[in-house]
Design a protein around this nucleic acid. Structure first.
Lengths: 246, 246
DNA sequence: TACGCATTGCGTATATGATACGCATTGAGC
DNA sequence: GCTCAATGCGTATCATATACGCAATGCGTA
């Protein structure tokens, strides 16, 4: 790993990959990158990404806005750090687990939980993962397929498929307020009932009528997620059997 | 369809669903909602979502920034209009096409094209679709499954699965600059080669080594997309056969 | 034909936010 | 105790969204 890695890379990546300079003497830092990132994550979790401003973050940390810039080159940089830190560590399993489906399911469910806890991740992640945090998750997912006969390209394709599904499902779920809030908009289901004109949107109208959008009685909120995931993994199973037969 | 539909809804939705008031006399409008939305879409396409500001939009339209607010209540409103207009109309097929797989594939490929032409859609769409434009796409996808034995809930689940995949794949593709641009960062593949330490990320290192991230010689850019889509539809096929057998 | 007013266009002002720049502060090592 | 590097932060600037109200304008009507 040569040390000229990121001459043109965002500052955050250089730090995350351990190329921080060993600063010695000087004033004792009252702030630290870890504290800043942790506070930023908490703020985004509690009040949404739109509420995350340098000023409000500084307020929470009890420091002046400009103090943050000693640890972070800018807001983009901060957001990269947040993306790397928030997901935590992926589930552990060996290099070639016997039960690929169980492993990958666990991975997906845990990642789903991450997205639900930090909905802003989905709004932020526009660039491909390049930090150690996200690459660890990616590696874990690839490892879950280590015991299958799939070739590397197919494995990656499967992992991306699962990743996109997890992300999309979480984003959809967090964007729909579960209950008709006191003040604002009625429930999504009720709205669709009014808007889905059977002449204009026949299939949609039938779905609404069948109660697809009504909250399921006694169902866990991630039941729909699990059902879709199972469809998806059925397809992966087909590909695996095909590769095994070939 | 009662006319008190959207007392608490965003202004854009009321307009889109045809509840615009029949204004009569007055000064002849030099601006129109259509022109504003079209210009906003062009701007976002050409310079990215970040470059879309009311001031820059007004500049392009040759009007003062505040003039826009006569047609749109705010920037959020404008973005709703953009989301409704940009996708255009979905592919046409009957209520119960015989070839569900062909229909759904066509739908997915066309939607993929929409996302590639307008990458900002993926960054914007945080709320569930409620405008006629997006509901038309949703309806078309549901119709593609009209001839299958899947129940309504399963159909919706499948459509969401495809939608999430299309969105995620397009977002990933547009976020990676194909070639190492002159100025900035090297290609993603080269970067991963340096960062994927085999001890820390064994599965990822193996994938990199196998050339998963290298551009395929003589392959269309959407080949990877089609491959993933086929995996996905295999899973749908399994579900359909299961439902047919039951 | 001329007038009145509804409706649009826009100038001004304000609030919020990101961040460049440079000075003040402080504490570890000499 | 002194020095100086590194931190904390005050001030200023620029971009942006948008409230508010006046000015411009042309249709319906007298």
């Amino acid at each position: 790993m040569p040390d000229d890695i990121g001459n043109e890379l965002p500052h955050a990546l250089n730090v995350l990959w351990g190329r921080a300079k060993p600063k010695g003497r000087g004033r004792t830092p009252a702030l630290s990158l870890e504290r800043i990132v942790a506070a930023a994550i908490t703020l985004a979790d509690e009040e949404g990404l739109a509420a995350l401003s340098m000023a409000r973050l500084a307020e929470r940390l009890g420091c002046a806005p400009m103090s943050l810039y000693r640890h972070v080159t800018g807001k983009d940089d901060l957001q990269l750090f947040m993306l790397a830190a928030a997901p935590g560590t992926p589930p552990e399993f060996g290099t070639a687990p016997a039960d690929w489906r169980g492993s990958l399911t666990r991975w997906a469910v845990e990642l789903f939980g991450v997205y639900l806890r930090h909905p802003w991740i989905a709004q932020l992640a526009n660039s491909p993962p390049m930090d150690p945090g996200q690459l660890a998750w990616l590696d874990a997912a690839l490892r879950s397929l280590g015991g299958t006969p799939l070739d590397p390209r197919a494995r990656f394709s499967v992992v991306m498929l699962v990743l996109h599904y997890v992300r999309g499902a979480a984003q959809l779920l967090t964007s729909i307020p579960a209950e008709p809030e006191e003040g604002a908009d009625r429930a999504y289901a009720a709205l669709l009932t009014e808007l889905a004109d059977p002449d204009r949107f026949p299939a949609l109208a039938r779905a609404v009528e069948a109660g697809v959008f009504d909250p399921q009685a006694g169902a866990a909120p991630d039941d729909d997620f699990r059902a879709g995931l199972d469809h998806l993994l059925d397809g992966v199973g087909v590909a695996i059997e095909r590769a095994a037969g070939a």
